[in-house]
């Protein structure tokens, strides 16, 4: 945990649901974490976790075939040194019980990505998405 208090801050941005957006997602996160003065090592880890979650939306919630205008939203909030990252999408409903690591001999990006997310974040929670959203994933980390 960092000893420096981080300013309360919230930002959100919508991205097209496709793999080309992942770089934009990372850039958005880096910019927000810069404003929050999060130290480099932690920033790298958080960017990885967020990018893996966004990748899972593209790859699993939409099976790599989202409509051209389909959007996902990433919201980063920091309040009382608690970082909360929310993802909203309108893909196939996620069954949290089925979100797990794969076996060693069957390593695919999704399984390893989920492992990275769980390693980096304090909590991973799937909530019911409120209209117009279907999936609402929340990652949290105490700074």
């Amino acid at each position: 945990m960092s000893e420096t208090a981080h300013q309360d801050h919230t930002e959100k941005k919508a991205f097209l649901v496709n793999s080309s957006s992942l770089k934009e997602v990372r850039t958005f996160c880096r910019d927000v974490f810069e404003k929050l003065h999060i130290q480099q090592d932690l920033k790298d880890e958080l960017v990885l976790a967020i990018a893996e979650a966004a990748q899972n939306i593209v790859k699993h919630a939409f099976k790599n075939s989202a409509d051209a205008n389909e959007l996902m939203v990433v919201q980063i909030s920091c309040e009382n040194d608690k970082l909360q990252i929310a993802f909203y999408d309108r893909g196939t409903p996620v069954d949290p019980k089925k979100v797990k690591h794969r076996q060693i001999d069957n390593v695919k990006p999704g399984g390893l990505g989920t492992f990275f997310i769980q390693e980096i974040m304090d909590a991973v929670e799937f909530k019911d998405g409120k209209k117009p959203w279907i999936n609402h994933l929340v990652l949290t980390k105490q700074l």
């Binding site: 990372r26 960017v47 990885l48 990018a51 893996e52 990748q55 390593v107 695919k108 990006p109 999704g110 390893l112 990505g113 990275f116």
Partner: peptide, 11 residues
């Protein structure tokens, strides 16, 4: 930067 997709390529 490299994510799980890159690790998959290495494997």
């Amino acid at each position: 930067y490299m994510d799980s997709s890159g690790i998959s390529v290495l494997i």
